[in-house]
Simulated scan of single mutants.
Amino acid sequence: MYAREIEADLTEVLVTEAQIQEKLAELARRIEADYEGREILLVGVLKGAVMVMADLARELRPHVRTDWMAVSSYGAGTESSGVVRILKDLDTDLTGRHVLIVEDIIDSGLTLSWLLANLKSRGTASVEICALLRKPDAARVDVTVKYLGFDIPNQFVVGYGLDYAERYRNLRDVAILAPHIYS
């Protein structure tokens, strides 16, 4: 889906598909350099990180393993509740592994902070974060993100995996959703 096809639903495109692909290639080169000689386990956070994880994994040159975890702190709303629930846990034993959490967006940081602590408690060799987007003005806890795509304003955004009520995930860009859609 292209932004021009649903422009009445959007107020502004923040990051284009081309900018996303360029940034993911840049992040992949950094990840490769940092993890040279070590196997990485990419842990994608469902459902929003599907696009980021797929494109990042394809961009990485060495073999990587992947697994998925589903956690929720949103429900059908537009703001994090701060209460994290595991909807799907990992299938992989993390003992001794170098884990790279792949996220679509960091809002308050509450969910990611919880997830980081949870994965570290499982005997990992290391845990780092790769996030496509971050809203610095929405942060309620400080989370160190080693690989970051873009800082964006504290607006409700959709596209490239990000949704509102399970819609807009297949928008190729990241755009601000018009308030009349969710008000």
Rank of each mutant, 00 (worst) to 15 (best):
V71S: 06
V127S: 08
V158Y: 05
H98V: 09
G77T: 15
F156W: 06
G123L: 04
L110H: 04
I129M: 07
P153A: 09
A138Q: 07
G77C: 11
D104F: 08
V127M: 05
L119T: 13
L100Q: 02
K146P: 08
V141W: 03
W114R: 02
Y147L: 09
G96D: 09
L132I: 10
S113K: 07
G109S: 11
L116E: 09
I101N: 05
R85W: 05
I106R: 01
T78Y: 05
A76Q: 14
D89E: 11
Q155V: 08
A70D: 06
N118C: 08
P153Y: 00
V83W: 00
A76C: 11
K146A: 14
S73C: 13
A139W: 00
I106E: 01
D142E: 11
D89S: 14
H98L: 04
I152S: 00
L132K: 03
G149F: 02
V157Q: 00
A139M: 10
P136H: 04
V127I: 09
G82P: 15
A131W: 00
E128A: 11
V143S: 05
S80Y: 10
T124K: 03
L148G: 03
R97N: 08
I129A: 00
G123H: 02
R140E: 14
C130D: 01
Y74L: 14
D104R: 03
F156Y: 13
V102A: 04
A139N: 02
T78R: 04
G149A: 06
L132R: 04
I129D: 01
E79Q: 15
V158T: 03
G96N: 10
L94R: 09
C130W: 03
L90A: 08
W114E: 05
T111V: 11
